[in-house]
Nucleic acid binder design. Structure first.
Length: 594
RNA sequence: GUCCCCGUAGCUCAGCCGGAUAGAGCACCAGAUUCCUAAUCUGGGGGCCGUGGGUUCGAAUCCCGCCGGGGACACCA
């Protein structure tokens, strides 16, 4: 069960008000909050209850606040309750109530913060990089944010399915197929196809392929060379000359090879998915036609011609009649094409099919992590989901903004064209998986961020990865020195010795973890976990340093076994909460730092 | 031209669904180390919350205009 003390006290406050105001309907309390006050001197918790229900109760908020404070002050959890400002009630919690949180943490350990099971099923789709090459740093942020968000939602009590949508249909994969075919031809003896002379240069070979099949080779990366060699080893010259069937075989082989590589990249980053959905298979199953029929039956499709976009130079624009979806009816700026002028489906149409597929599998909430370049795509997709589900299913899109990689104060180029293409693997090799994951989650997803390669490997306060791991390592160091007592036994020890403000502050922070999980999940903001852990680490380092000035505050006291036990319980709980938070972020809690 | 994201301390950024005197780290200044790891900690200075309106008991937060940065805009994915 959840152990959110803010939720508990909020319930207490509402119960108290229901006694004071028996005639007030239950829904009047919806906007009542119980939260940490901004100013710590105001106490541990603050409620706006008198402010938000004053009008409905026909009472001036300050008067109601005074009555509520009186009722709350009588609670066993509460040391002091006082009306304040325009109608707040500030609570100071009893120290022994705060201390009761430690055994709870020690029994729940890494599960502390786990929310109660929530109804409904959530589908989180992330990464979904095109299977046309290895992952690069541009994909990395979305992968980490998606993985962290999925873990966070699960921690908050949601039933989460993590999904990867393989874009293995469409023009890009056609192009990939040709590029792989080119590499296949290169792996064959020249005599097998005779497209170029023995000893032809790479440019000549490429030009020969482009001329022979009137195609343009967009993908030629070295990562396709082994694919060509494997195809040649497996099929000899049988795939020459090309025909649609043989090219389809090359394509599916290449997509499988690329996906194998992407899965390795994901594993290296520690990013997990429950399910991989193939666009091509879904389309082959007829999901597009099904979605189209469903929309058509609701009168949401029509034949029409779109206006040309203004302000953008389009030399070859001409009016075309297409099948259009009335996304405007659902808040989009314009209606959107479902079929190209040649009658084939647009990417949008395939994506509609993808979402119908999700809705049919029974999800109640869909969450996507997309790159910022897809920002213009959000409204139409939300429109489609609303239409396909009769507005039952929600679609939230988290946009992951661009990451600028910086080294030695200089931007590191990431484009393929510039030649110095940074793969995800390069980045992990350079700074380590934990640093990549933690750093990518220290910013709101929709803010651009700078990834400073020098900073993330630095071992100092500037580097939050290090700072948090160091706190955990310090906890573990203390516990090892004390002979690693079991958490079960520590959950039983008397805690009266914990009275220092720094000790109680640390407990307060930890007791707030379930609330952080709940709020961060609701806002779809996994970065808040990183900030919480930074604060928690700071509280712990503070306490540690107090022990340097005042030896009676050190954790291990040779001549005071009871105080030592109590403090070991505090330290063990801190370590457990750090692990709980790092678990959400997918970052390893280290035992020691050397 | 339209749409989306961003604009908070010198720098990098928090600020949860509107709440009380706007915060953290870095940098700068001044301190703490025979000690469970000083890889840390304590104190200090530093703000027109881009800007102008609006909503209300109350706005960094919500709404509108403008300015600045980034991104996206038929038949690509």
């Amino acid at each position: 069960m959840s152990h959110d003390i803010f939720a508990q006290l909020r319930d207490r406050a509402i119960a108290a008000l229901q006694v004071l105001l028996p005639e007030l309907p239950a829904d009047a309390y919806a906007r009542v909050t119980m939260e940490p006050p901004r100013e710590a001197s105001h106490g541990d918790m603050s409620t706006n209850a008198a402010l938000v229900i004053g009008k409905a109760a026909k009472m001036p908020p300050p008067k109601l606040a005074a009555q509520l404070a009186e009722a709350l002050a009588a609670l066993p959890e509460v040391e002091e309750a006082a009306p304040a400002g325009p109608g707040f009630v500030n609570l100071r919690l009893r120290e022994d109530f705060l201390r009761t949180q430690l055994p709870i943490i020690l029994r729940e350990r890494e599960d502390f913060g786990q929310g109660d099971a929530k109804p409904g099923r959530v589908n989180v789709e992330y990464v979904s990089a095109n299977p046309t090459g290895p992952m690069h740093v541009g994909h990395c942020r979305g992968a980490v944010v998606g993985d962290g968000l999925a873990a966070l939602l699960a921690k908050a009590g949601h039933d989460v399915t993590r999904e990867y949508y393989i874009n293995d249909a469409g023009a890009q994969v056609q192009a990939l197929g040709w590029a792989a075919y080119w590499r296949y031809l290169e792996a064959l003896p020249v005599a097998a196809h005779g497209l170029w002379a023995e000893g032809a240069s790479p440019e000549e070979r490429k030009a020969a392929v482009e001329a022979a099949y009137s195609t343009t080779l967009q993908y030629g990366g070295e990562y396709l060379l082994p694919v060509g060699v494997e195809l040649a080893a497996k099929h000899g010259a049988d795939l020459f000359p090309p025909n649609p069937e043989k090219l389809a075989l090359v394509r599916s082989f290449t997509v499988r090879a690329m996906m194998a590589e992407i899965r390795e990249d994901l594993a290296a980053l520690g990013v997990k998915h429950d399910i991989f959905i193939s666009e091509a298979e879904m389309i082959a199953e007829g999901k597009l036609e099904e979605a189209e029929a469903l929309l058509d039956s609701q009168g949401l499709l029509y034949r029409g011609v779109l206006e040309p976009p203004k302000g953008k130079q389009l030399d070859d624009w001409e009016p075309r009649e297409q099948t259009l979806f009335r996304s405007k009816d659902f808040g989009d700026d314009t209606d959107r094409p479902l079929r190209k002028s040649d009658g084939t489906g647009t990417y949008f149409a395939n994506d509609i099919a993808n979402h119908l597929h999700k809705i049919e599998r029974g999800f109640d909430a869909l969450v996507h992590v997309w790159g910022a370049d897809h920002g213009g795509y959000v409204k139409r997709m939300q429109a489609a989901v609303a239409a396909l589900s009769n507005r039952r299913v929600s679609l939230d899109v988290v946009l992951a903004q661009i990451v600028h990689v910086v080294k030695d104060g200089q931007p590191v180029r990431m484009s393929k064209r510039a030649g110095s293409y940074i793969t995800l693997r390069d980045l992990i090799d350079e700074v380590g998986r934990d640093a990549v994951r933690f750093t990518m989650l220290t910013r709101k997803a929709d803010a651009q961020m700078e990834f400073d390669l020098d900073l993330v490997i630095q071992q100092s306060r500037d580097n939050p990865v290090f700072y948090v791991q160091y706190a955990h390592a310090r906890c573990r160091s203390v516990l090892r020195s004390a002979g690693d007592p079991s958490l079960e036994s520590l959950a039983e020890v008397p805690l009266d010795a914990l009275t220092d403000p720094a000790e109680l502050g640390l407990i307060r922070r930890m007791a707030g973890w379930p609330r952080v999980v709940e709020a961060a999940a609701a806002a779809r903001e996994p970065h808040r976990v990183a900030f919480f852990l930074n604060d928690l680490a700071s509280d712990f380092h503070l306490l540690w340093n107090k022990g340097k000035d005042d030896t009676t505050l050190r954790f291990i006291q040779a001549d005071a076994p009871a105080a030592t036990q109590a403090r070991l319980a505090l330290v063990a709980a801190t370590a457990a909460v750090v692990r709980s938070g790092l678990g959400v972020m997918g970052v390893t809690p280290v035992e020691e730092m050397r």
